[in-house]
Design a binder for these strands. Structure first.
Lengths: 124, 124
DNA sequence: CAGAATCCGGGTGGATACTG
DNA sequence: CAGTATCCACCCGGATTCTG
């Protein structure tokens, strides 16, 4: 017995809602940049701050917390003086790295064409 | 002669700004869903509307216009009665399809783990 | 060094109603 | 069928200031 149409569609919607929910994390303004930077290895807070310019500390902090909450990034505090905090990709974060790099690569390759397409579209 | 540091960093920032600018289109709420649907072939407006539930017509229209502006989707109007409009991926849109599918696949595979990670993170 | 707290303007996107 | 128009609540993200 197959479930009624309505039920299938509800499941489909719930599934897509979940996917969109997950993708919204990497859809925000800075996650892709930070993930790419961490793809090269462990980094400290101010190091990431410089590498990800012109991000602000507030947004870097928020981005890292979001990524940590989703289990994509690990945060390690060293009780030294001055304090030192290391960020790195978790295995799950690393599993996303290649896709994110592909995305960034695609964006770079197509940037010029897209800028041109926008200009031509806006001309009408 | 290599350019001064400041100049290199400005170029790097400009390059990243461009990439982020391009990625913001697919970072919005509905583009990934719509691109995935169009990945299966040409679709009409109301067809996309149903397939992408619970999107509203307003957001579907806005999403399609954004994708068309960037040259990722083509729009073809048939002067029939009632009117009929076909949407399809352009070659550039198709070049993005595999990455978007990878992204959606990753999101689906990791959704459960991420929900769990969030719950455990929020417990603190 | 590594953040947190506060303020706030602009834009995203939902609901609803209307149109050719 | 394929949209547009209007209104508006929400929240993202920048600037600034403060802290252990």
């Amino acid at each position: 017995m197959s479930p009624p149409i309505a039920e299938i569609e509800l499941d489909e919607q719930a599934r897509r809602a979940l996917i969109r929910d997950v993708l919204e994390r990497i859809g925000d303004k800075w996650s892709v940049v930070v993930i790419c930077q961490l793809g090269d290895g462990t980094r400290r807070f101010n190091e990431l701050s410089r590498l990800s310019e012109p991000i602000t500390k507030r947004m870097l902090s928020a981005t890292l917390q979001g990524l940590e909450r989703d289990g994509l990034v690990s945060r390690t505090v060293h009780a030294t003086k001055p304090p030192r905090v290391d960020y790195a990709l978790t295995p799950r974060g690393a599993s996303l790295l290649q896709i994110v790099r592909d995305l960034a690569g695609w964006a770079e390759e197509n940037a010029a064409g897209i800028v041109e397409a926008r200009a031509s579209f806006d001309a009408k």
